[in-house]
Amino acid sequence: MADYANPEVLVSTDWVQEHIDDPGVVIVESNEDILLYEIGHIRNSVKFDWQTELQDQLIRDCVSKESFEALLSEKGISNDSAVVFYGDRSNWWACYALWTFKVLGHEKCLIMDGGRQKWVDEGRELVKDVPERAKTDYKVSAVDESIRAFRDDVLEHMSSGESLVDVRSPKEYSGELLHMEAYPQEGALRGGHIPGAVNVPWATAANEDGTFRSADELVEIYEKGQGLSKDKNVIAYCRIGERSSHTWFVLTYLLGYENVRNYDGSWTEWGNLVRAPIEK
């Protein structure tokens, strides 16, 4: 059985348990459900809220370099900390947080395979105490936008026939729905997908227990199933760029693709752009 391209970015629940008190490791919980951390979290873990902390609160963008520095300094994360992300919904939000950390140039980022669900299912300890970490003086050395695609990049990418992965549900892809099934509409005026995009819903990459599928299964899904390959440039998108960060993580780290970008403008931008090409 093939191994992941970068197996070192995934750590197990056992590994996290052993490193809870490791001063070089910071465990970060990032969830969709905003109450889960307060109800109970891995001891010594710190909470990041993807929406109020990892996004700019005025313009639609990732958190600014200055705010990110202030945020990480406040939470006691150093430039050389190994940050282990975990969260609810098969690490969907953990991957989004990791992607944002990578854009802001944080070097050592890991994911706890299986996320919060696996930790809870294994009956491991959850605590309510928020750790008191000494403040740091975090500095962003370089912002890395090579993993991020903007609308003009997507247009160029599409025009030259390069690979696009739409990770939304089949009904969103077909244009039947403008938003995730059962989620209220979030403001796209047109339905459909970017021409040429293949549809691989993000959760296809996750097992029932929240862990990632094996390397062989991922190859089957993305390469044999949809014709993606390591040598291609790939852009992943969804509705607001969070589900696609999960797929970005899978393609980049688990399958080892060297040129994958997450289009965080995603459908809520594309589906509103005047004259943006759409296929149904």
Partner: peptide
Amino acid sequence: KLGIRRVRGLSA
């Protein structure tokens, strides 16, 4: 205070 998407569904 909590982000708009968190209250989706509540209106329903």
